[in-house]
């Protein structure tokens, strides 16, 4: 039997008396493009936070390629191949777009800090490599023109794209996108859908995305998971989810 790329087993996340995620089990296979939806406060972002090690789950286990992630620090998890973006954009605002993405690429560094302090040849070589990798992702995301602009000076839609570029530069196998289309106009979200498909098809990145824009979810996802009050209430292909009475009641309202 093939092990799934990502596996959550009975994961519970409690904040004091509040149960944000309740005994959640889910699997994502390599190469899948999965959507995670649900009403506000359903616990979607919290799921991302426990996967990436920002919170340690109160109960349950999280496995990535069969290896448990519980107890690992976020940077160790990133190193294993999981990257993410944030719902409320968290770019390094004072740094340029290129610098932001170079920090993403830094996860693959091999030189030591003391070598950098003495500017060894190996460091110079590595800097050039990491910068080339960062520029590659800027190219892919059509951000090359703004490479030297401060991240905070960019419009919202571009900032979201920089976040994706930064996450991709860590060379992930799985990328978690938290509401990538939020704040985008229809044109921009159309482009985003193209990009998401391309990431999977061209670069082989597995994608799990949270999104409120149903056009995006239904348009790109092959499988959708629905969360309500921290519990998985439905799971299946977009058409089935769209017509699932429980989902309509809890989240979608009118059938879309």
């Amino acid at each position: 039997m093939k092990t799934p790329l990502l596996q959550l087993q009975q994961v519970t996340m409690r904040f004091g008396g509040l149960i944000a995620v309740r005994s959640l089990s889910l699997e994502v296979d390599a190469g899948e493009l999965v959507g995670l939806i649900g009403p506000n406060g359903a616990g979607k972002t919290t799921v991302f936070n426990v996967i990436t090690g920002i919170y340690r789950p109160t109960e349950g286990d999280i496995r990535f390629q069969g290896r448990s992630l519980v107890g690992l620090k976020p940077h160790q998890i990133t190193r294993l191949g999981i990257a993410r973006t944030f719902q409320n954009i968290r770019l390094f605002r004072g740094l340029t777009v290129l610098e932001n993405v170079r920090i993403g690429a830094f996860v693959r560094h091999r030189t030591r800090l003391w070598q950098a302090a003495l500017r060894f040849k190996a460091v110079e070589k590595e800097d050039a490599e990491l910068e080339a990798r960062a520029r590659h992702w800027l190219e892919v995301l059509e951000l090359s023109a703004v490479a030297d602009v401060r991240a905070s000076a960019l419009p919202y839609g571009l900032q979201r794209r920089v976040e994706i570029a930064r996450a991709l530069a860590t060379h992930p196998q799985l990328i978690l996108l938290d509401e990538p289309a939020a704040g985008m106009n229809p044109n921009e979200s159309e482009e985003l859908m193209h990009l998401i498909r391309r990431l999977r098809d061209e670069f082989g990145v597995t994608i799990l995305l949270i999104e409120h824009d149903m056009r995006v979810v239904m348009g790109v996802c092959e499988r959708v998971l629905v969360l309500d009050y921290g519990e998985l209430i439905a799971e299946g292909p977009p058409e089935a989810i769209r017509n699932d009475p429980r989902v309509i009641e809890a989240y979608l309202g009118e059938p879309v």
Partner: peptide
């Protein structure tokens, strides 16, 4: 000048984001 320097800067800019980016 090196990418290690950016790692220091990323801590100043946003510690959580830095950690999640693998720093």
């Amino acid at each position: 000048k090196s990418t290690h320097g950016l790692a220091f800067l990323s801590v100043r800019e946003d510690e959580t984001a830095a950690e999640v980016m693998g720093v």
